[in-house]
Amino acid sequence: MEITPLLEAFFQKYSYDFRHYSEAHIRRRIINRMNVSGLESIDQMQSRLLTDEVFASEFLQDLSITVTEMFRDPGFYRSFREKVIPILKTYPFLKIWHAGCATGEEAYSVAILLQEEGLYDRTTIYATDFNQHGLSQAEEGIFPSKMMKDYTANYQLSGGKESFSDYYTSNYDSVIMNKSLKRNIVWANHNLVTDSVFAEVHVIFCRNVLIYFDNILQNKVQRLFHDSLINGGILCLGSKEGIRFTELFDRYTELDKKQRIFKKRY
């Protein structure tokens, strides 16, 4: 089954470009959608995508990964607190870009961490994603109560200093994050594949996004990150992501190799 023509057609019609995503991943998503919708061939799938905009927007959701957690990989946040925060304290103001923020869990985590370290008042977090649906959820800041047990454990393991439940208000099955955490977060639609630099920032978080891209696209996005960071700026990737295989591997030093925290060279 050849999926390239479908991705090409989808890009031409809707301007969302998945041509340089991991082929195996996209193929799996396409097959799932075909099964769910009872479509028998890739041609059927393609013509449905091009004629039915509701279906196309469902497909776009399929391709957007929103699996995330608060304080995901606590060891990473612990290292960020120990190794990055002292650097950030030397700046009079901070701009942080959270690229691919999905439903916002990690952006709220960073806001909490900065608040505890006394830095949040001078910070702006730009939390961006191409998935508008996810962004709206993120902005609401409402999460299922049943997740809070895991998030609290993550928070504590990450070196959290307060009681995690102070950061939200429970309401039956869901919790709402404190308004004060949202005050310095700007939620914005940005597509890493097709959009360009929009600000000069001190820190970029982009965790478990690049794994979905092929080499060509990884290099392109790494250039975008490099152009967006100030000299000495910090790049935080997912626990299995690196810059070793990209063109920019010599433009950074490793602040924490295991936790994938890099510092842009001067």
Binding site: H25, I65, V67, I211
Partner: peptide
């Protein structure tokens, strides 16, 4: 396969990792 990631094989015989459902 690493813990907590799906492991996939691409046609060019390289690995991809994902954190899908």
């Amino acid at each position: 396969a690493p813990a907590n990631y799906h492991l996939l094989i691409e046609k060019d015989k390289t690995f991809s990792l994902t954190i899908g459902e």
